[in-house]
């Protein structure tokens, strides 16, 4: 699923780009001759290499051209990163054997080099987890620790607040790439799938209708939630966590439909994205996304409606309120 979606999104983007920026021929050779761009001078090349490798692995088996990688990184870093720099790094990774490449048009498309499907890595990690006797967390600093159910609910509420628009202008670094992604994913029909696309959509929604009338935007989901599990009940809560919402329930494939569904209502308000089509197309994923977030959607919206200023920047106090509301909402539901 994600390959198909992502592929379409990427092709659409590439098509759009091709009009004004044709892909350079023999990129690898050019890159060796080209001077390193400014972005790589600011960031150590090891860090860029890591980002490129991460982007390739995150693509889930889909080969990426240097243009794709560049677009990912520009979205992530908010910096102008020359295509030649990306190409250089990809060539370097290829020299090391970390990536493989295939001809794609006049350049190359790159894939992370994987040994027989990562069995060694998985076995090692299992061994690491098992052998640690619960001590692993005290030795290796883990990015995230485990959540208990209450934490999970609170976290969803916090993320829902985070995805609500700022009263002020959006941060400069996020605005531009988000807009680009929204444009990209709007190209092919129904491609709101990948994490990148989803993010773009949520950011676009944030700057759109909600920014103008935050109060109304904050209250209306509450009414909908109270009315029943409509499509938009997921909107408030899961806008910030689209992929994750459905991923555990139905595997990575369902992450994208969940994302599309969760974010369509605000988008529909903005410019008429095909919300019903998407929910129809992905009934399973949609249902799971609703099931897992409906819980959180109610209380989050409730807390907003009850709180003094819906849509205003959620403070710590608001967080506590939302949490309390979450407990109540959970019992009611």
């Amino acid at each position: 699923m994600p390959e198909a979606h992502g592929g379409r999104a990427a092709r659409g983007a590439r098509g759009a780009r091709a009009a004004h920026a044709p892909q350079p021929a023999h990129e690898a050779r050019e890159a060796h001759e080209a001077p390193e761009a400014a972005a790589s001078a600011r960031r150590p090349s090891g860090e860029l290499e890591a980002s490129v490798l991460a982007a390739l692995w995150a693509a889930d088996g889909r080969p990426l051209t240097p243009a794709d990688v560049q677009r990912d990184l520009v979205a992530a870093l908010g910096a102008d990163l020359a295509r030649t720099t990306v190409t250089t790094i990809l060539a370097r990774l290829h020299d090391k054997g970390a990536v493989s490449r295939t001809r794609a048009g006049r350049g190359y498309a790159y894939l992370p080099a994987q040994d027989p499907p990562g069995l060694a890595a998985r076995r090692m990690r299992t061994e690491l987890d098992k052998s640690a006797e619960g001590q692993r967390g005290t030795v290796l600093a883990r990015f995230v620790s485990e959540l208990d159910p209450a934490d999970e609910r609170l976290l969803r509420e916090l993320l829902a607040q985070a995805s609500q628009p700022d009263p002020g202008p959006p941060p400069a670094s996020g605005a531009n790439p988000a807009g680009r992604h929204a444009a990209d994913s709007a190209g092919p029909p129904g491609a709101g799938g990948t994490g990148a696309g989803g993010r773009g959509a949520s950011a676009a929604a944030g700057t759109g209708p909600h920014g103008a009338s935050a109060g109304a935007g904050g209250v209306s989901p509450a009414a909908e939630v109270a009315g029943g599990p409509g499509v938009s009940s997921a909107a408030g809560a899961s806008a910030g966590l689209p992929g994750a919402a459905a991923e555990v329930a139905a595997g990575p494939g369902a992450g994208s439909p969940g994302a599309g569904l969760g974010e369509t209502p605000p988008a529909a308000g903005a410019g008429g994205a095909p919300a019903p089509t998407e929910s129809g197309a992905w009934p399973g994923g949609g249902a799971s996304a609703l099931g897992s977030t409906g819980y959180a959607a109610g209380p989050a919206a409730e807390a907003d409606a009850a709180g003094s200023a819906p849509g205003s920047d959620g403070g710590a106090g608001a967080g506590i309120d939302a949490r309390r509301g979450g407990d109540l909402g959970g019992e009611a539901g």
């Binding site: 090349s45 090891g46 860090e47 860029l48 290499e49 890591a50 980002s51 490129v52 490798l53 991460a54 692995w57 990774l93 090391k96 970390a98 990536v99 992370p112 080099a113 994987q114 040994d115 499907p117 990562g118 060694a120 890595a121 998985r122 076995r123 090692m124 990690r125 061994e127 690491l128 052998s131 640690a132 001590q135 692993r136 030795v139 290796l140």
Partner: peptide, 23 residues
Amino acid sequence: LTARARRAAAAGATGGDLTVLDD
């Protein structure tokens, strides 16, 4: 534990300071 983690990381793909485990 550190040695074990290092062995686990050796099974991954490396670029820059990042090691990716296919998992």
